[in-house]
Simulated assay, not measured.
Amino acid sequence: MKKITLHLNNMICDCCVRVVRMDLEAMGVKVLKISLGEVVINFNPLKTTLEAIEKMLETNGISLIKNKEGIMVKEIKRSVISLVHHTTFNAMVRNSDYLVGKFGKSYPYLSSLFSKYEGITLEKYIILHKVERIKGLIEENELTLSEIAFMMGYSSVQYLSTQFKSVAGVSVSEFKKHPAQYRVSIDKLGKGSFATESDHEIPMSII
């Protein structure tokens, strides 16, 4: 039996985790540990090849990350998703400071590395996720826009509204009329997700 850790790209939701676990077990592979973007497995190379595992992953839209830089970019994406979508930490610390502290690298280095692999700046990627989280909070209708602005680390409702429209292409009031029409799955957020592509038109000082 061979034990290895696989680093996976585009595996960023609980549904992905369930599907990968199920498909690996169907191949006779023992899953020792699995989380977003990573799985530790035991398998018999004589019965199941790594190439077969990679092909199975690709059928699910997931790819293996095979170099250190790619692994770090995957970890950056996972950290952004965790911070923005699963905590209320945004009101207490800038996202850039959080990432610098977590990875022990300068923000310019992290941003340059991220852009190299993803074709979008880290700053824009964070904003995409912040706006998508805001969409969800608006749709839940449990908080006022002022409360959402504070929770997500915005200095004012006006600033949130301006950035929201620049990214989503519609105002907050228009979004409320047809929310499902403007939602984007978090695994689809990235290059090309902005309604406005000009850096000069997208307020980006709040990360």
Rank of each mutant, 00 (worst) to 15 (best):
Leu64Arg: 02
Thr49Arg: 14
Leu32Glu: 12
Arg21Gly: 06
Met56Arg: 01
Met22Gly: 10
Glu75Tyr: 09
Glu54Ala: 00
Lys47Ser: 11
Met56Glu: 01
Asn42Val: 01
Met27Trp: 02
Leu46Thr: 15
Ile81Ser: 01
Thr87Pro: 04
Lys66Pro: 05
Phe43Val: 00
Gly70Glu: 08
Glu75Ala: 14
Leu46Arg: 12
Glu69Asn: 11
Gly37Pro: 08
Val31Trp: 11
Ser63Arg: 05
Glu69Cys: 07
Arg21Lys: 15
Lys77Ile: 07
Val73Ala: 05
Thr59Tyr: 09
Glu38Pro: 00
Val17His: 11
Ile76Glu: 09
His85Met: 13
Thr87Ile: 06
Ser79Asn: 09
Ile62Trp: 06
Leu50Asn: 08
Glu58Trp: 03
Leu50Thr: 01
Thr88Ile: 05
Thr59Cys: 10
Glu75Met: 14
Ala91Met: 03
Arg94Val: 00
Ile53Tyr: 07
Ile81Glu: 04
Glu38Gly: 08
Thr88Tyr: 09
Asn44Val: 05
Met92Gly: 05
Thr49Phe: 04
Asp23Ile: 06
Thr87Lys: 07
Val84Gln: 02
Ile62Gln: 04
Ser79Pro: 03
Ser63Thr: 02
Phe43Arg: 08
Thr59Lys: 10
Lys74Arg: 15
Ile81Ala: 07
Arg78Asp: 10
Lys77Thr: 02
Glu25Pro: 10
Thr88Leu: 05
Arg78Gln: 07
Gly28Cys: 08
Lys55Phe: 00
Gly70Ile: 02
Glu54Phe: 04
Glu54Pro: 02
Asn67Arg: 09
Met92Trp: 05
Ile34Cys: 02
Leu32Ile: 14
Ile65Lys: 05
Val80Thr: 08
Glu54Trp: 05
Glu58Pro: 04
Asn95Glu: 15
Lys47Asn: 10
Lys55Ile: 04
Phe43His: 10
Asn60Tyr: 02
Glu75Ile: 08
Ile62Asp: 00
Leu64Gln: 04
Leu36Val: 07
Val31Phe: 09
Ile53Trp: 02
Leu32Asn: 14
Asn44Lys: 12
Thr48Tyr: 00
Ile81Gly: 01
Met72Arg: 12
